[in-house]
Nucleic acid binder design. Sequence first.
DNA 1: CTTAAATACTTTAAATCTAAAATGTTGGAC
DNA 2: GTCCAACATTTTAGATTTAAAGTATTTAAG
Lengths: 164, 164
Amino acid sequence: MNDKATGLELNHESRLQIEDHQSIRLWLRLLTCTNMIEQRLRARLREEFATTLPRFDFMAQLDRAPDGLTMGELSQRMMVSGGNVSGIANQLSGEGLIDRSPVPDNRRTLCVTLTDKGRSRFADMAAAHERWVVEMLGDLSQAEHQQIMMHLTKLKRGVAALES
Amino acid sequence: MNDKATGLELNHESRLQIEDHQSIRLWLRLLTCTNMIEQRLRARLREEFATTLPRFDFMAQLDRAPDGLTMGELSQRMMVSGGNVSGIANQLSGEGLIDRSPVPDNRRTLCVTLTDKGRSRFADMAAAHERWVVEMLGDLSQAEHQQIMMHLTKLKRGVAALES
DNA sequence: CTTAAATACTTTAAATCTAAAATGTTGGAC
DNA sequence: GTCCAACATTTTAGATTTAAAGTATTTAAG
């Protein structure tokens, strides 16, 4: 049976291999695009605001959550380790850009918020950041934006749904 | 004139803002997808092969270039600093997975190649790596693959074409 | 109430990564 | 030939990151 089906099996297999390689190529392309954009943003944040991408991300998460976030929520949303978040929080707190206030009914958690200084500092950076991103993604039409978003949404769901 | 056109200007401006936010959202989605995939790959490489993503990437670049690559080429292709490449090369060389041989007509450059041991070690990892990636991107049809690739190619060109 | 597991966070140790300086090499300009 | 800028790489110092261990708190089971 295996021998008889060899022709078809090969076709099938070679098709699969092509699809596999396409997956790898797609992943590498995704990685390249992200790296390119990330490196540009990183360089510009350093040059123009003397800050880093993780610090910017930290503040962006807080800016989007006016009621504040716990350290754990920040860790999840930034997709970095908890220890990392602690370190960045120490810096930003030292510079007076964020507040860490205890939560009444749970002494383990801290609620992190932007200070007024932090909020206004972030506003400047966010405006520039948005300009840079638009500049980089500007070649794509709105229709293309929507298509990629749709596909990446599907991709994201697929990855998130995997076990472990 | 400015006052007269206010209505239209506002429309125009708000449309622009929407597009701007879409660019940001697209960038964040791109980043999230890449991070999710990257973290899974990183964890699996560690669990199953006791190695890291940069080391895997280093070997993958060499596997794709049978004639070998210089340190500078590796740095470019991996999109990391030269110093970083030196460090990883030291590790892999110490484990007998790569060779660094001088180039006859230019004593500044080193030609890096996989050893037989490195090539066979990489083959195992690459097979698993490909399974993992296919597993994660498998929800997308071939047509979708091609569409995203097309869009990311355009995106990549746009970013690469920017000054500086 | 006591204990044990789970949770939220921080600390630690080691690896990674970067920018910048240092080293050695090459290729003209003169 | 001599110098000087450009190049390829390594080294260095410092920042970032992670996984894992540690601390403190909460929850819930017995």
